[in-house]
Write a protein that binds this DNA or RNA. Structure first.
Lengths: 162, 162
DNA sequence: GGCTTGCTTGGAGTGCGCTCTAACTCAGTA
DNA sequence: TACTGAGTTAGAGCGCACTCCAAGCAAGCC
């Protein structure tokens, strides 16, 4: 069981806040949309769209209506980015976020969702390893064939099966 | 340098031919579209579409116009499936196939393309490993919290940051 | 002959994840 | 006051990778 010691995070830059995976990040509104776009690699358009569909909670605004993201927003974005990198659909990310919004009674459901996704990630890892082996094999083959083709122009023309 | 001894493959089933990565597979037209769909996990629609866009060479037909796929077609499909699993776009797969169609003088270009893609796959592997670590961390956290919630209903309500 | 099954075609449609547009506001600087 | 630049909105549009549709054809079975 994890004990959560509070951490002072007031002085994090946008990039640091984005890459720091903290459970109880600072909620002070701080970062403009362009800073967050730069830190996250998403466009401002996409950040607004994430908020519109509910993937981000409504972001704080300045008195003139401009968004100011907190470190907590950035931490969530970073985690969502991880899920995205592993191929989780926006719909499933949304499902997770909506469970989180419902509070304590959804711990189990979220746990289950993550465990399921971890299995998918493990499957992907296995697929990638297998493909890496195939690529290594093909690349070796091509290295040999390219040397052939360069040194021996009169070699018999075999049909290439990809 | 790879020496390519010819291999007798006449008796392969569709599924075997699909999963056997052979360089000079049999070209005898043999398998119906539904067999290939079952073996490859693609739909018949998708197989026809692949042919239409040039990802597969024109497939042999029976006298009545039905497709009959060879083991070589299946081997290519299997390799394309690997590329797809690693996130290569259809456009890039097409680029590779078109290079293969041009024959010997494109060995180097194909080699380069595969080496580039291998790098992308390695990057993906790194991303997945990193995400797996995050998932493990979160899952442990939730396992603990779920136990809390179950045994201690009066626990203080911490705001959940994802 | 009539029915079913499995296939054919070109082209239209779908779902996803953004991505862009148009018209606008606001703060800051010369 | 004029201009610039960064931001705002709802909604339309786009590229990708399929996915489906309608209409038709050929073979096999009762």
């Amino acid at each position: 069981m994890a004990t959560l010691a509070p951490i002072r995070l007031d002085l994090l830059t946008c990039g640091q806040a984005y890459s720091t995976p903290v459970a109880d990040a600072d909620r002070t509104p701080r970062h403009s949309i362009s800073e967050v776009a730069a830190a996250s690699g998403l466009t401002a358009h996409t950040l607004r769209w994430y908020e519109r569909i509910g993937l981000l909670d409504p972001v704080d605004r300045t008195h003139s209506g401009q968004r100011r993201y907190s470190d907590a927003d950035l931490a969530r974005l970073a985690f969502l980015g991880r899920l995205r990198l592993t191929g989780m659909s926006v719909a499933d990310q949304l499902r997770y976020v909506e469970l989180a919004r419902l509070g304590n009674q959804t711990y189990e459901a979220r746990h289950e969702l993550l465990v399921e996704h971890r299995e998918a990630v493990r499957q992907q890892l296995a697929d990638l390893h297998a493909t890496l082996a195939v690529l290594d094999y093909k690349i070796d083959l091509y290295a040999g064939k390219a040397a052939d083709a360069a040194t021996c122009a009169t070699t018999d023309r075999k049909k290439q099966s990809a």
